[in-house]
Design a protein around this nucleic acid. Structure first.
Lengths: 139, 139
DNA sequence: TCTTGCGTTAAAGTGCACTTTAAGGATTAT
DNA sequence: ATAATCCTTAAAGTGCACTTTAACGCAAGA
């Protein structure tokens, strides 16, 4: 299948598929006689995988490293590949933690906006206090 | 307190505190007679807030909009401020979802690496199959 | 045949969020 | 008093991940 179809199937723009291939974020895609890319299901799978990981904030570097190892097609580097994945999994878990904390804070703030901000604003208006906002939920 | 102290307290580098102030990511910090910033507890709170949100991937634009509204110190824009926060909360929730999906996928992949990859590699070695990796857990 | 629409590459440009540099002013330590 | 160590600003530079541009080729339809 051509790059347009691959793009539709993966939600990654053709330019970015080419870019991903160029930097090694996906393995090289085979070409036909005219040098035109002919994507297989497995190529599509790789694009989806990389998109998935990129969306989650996994940096290109770790991904490229992983793809490179995979491409060597050597069973001896399976532990290395597994370790990259495990590292990224750890980082992902940390990022989720951080996001959840921020979300809880923001949720608290939104839920209590009227209760805390309106009286604060009133005092502010009357010059009773100086401007200050950030109060966090005591975790 | 000076910018060094503020930096230590918040984990944000002095350069970035200045940068944050310059672009409006925190309200202006009062200066002493020499034009040197003198941070109050509330200034520290703002830095922490912005860092917290930035770490979670909240873009500067939304944050600046929020700070700007806050600075107008007008109770009438409380709903607008609340809405910005609510919007960002929604986006944060989506990002968390996406990360959790990626994590689950990666976790599956790591947990099953030996089980799925080792036999795959063996077949590959023997030329029995072509290279293809990405198989997802059926969610 | 020629225009439309797909594909290709290399290279330059963009946007974001810092980060560094340059040039200088004030306070503290020796 | 002079060197170190803080502070200040404006402006230029960096790194990442695209994104756009330019210049081209092939192939089917009017």
């Amino acid at each position: 299948m051509n790059i347009k179809k691959a793009s539709e199937l993966t939600g990654v723009k053709p330019e970015n598929i080419r870019y991903y291939e160029r930097i090694g974020l996906i393995p090289p895609v085979p070409r036909d006689d005219n040098g035109v890319r002919d994507f297989s299901e497995s190529d599509i799978g790789w694009i989806k995988f990389s998109k998935h990981m990129r969306d989650a904030g996994v940096g290109t570097e770790a991904l490229i490293e992983y793809i490179t190892l995979f491409q060597k097609g050597d069973a001896s580097n399976i532990p290395a590949r597994k370790e990259i994945l495990r590292d990224q999994l750890g980082e992902l878990e940390e990022r989720i933690e951080s996001l959840v904390r921020a979300r809880d804070y923001l949720k608290f703030k939104v839920d209590n906006y009227e209760a805390t901000m309106v009286p604060l604003e009133e005092k502010l208006q009357s010059g009773e206090i100086k401007k200050e906002e950030p109060e966090c939920p005591k975790k």
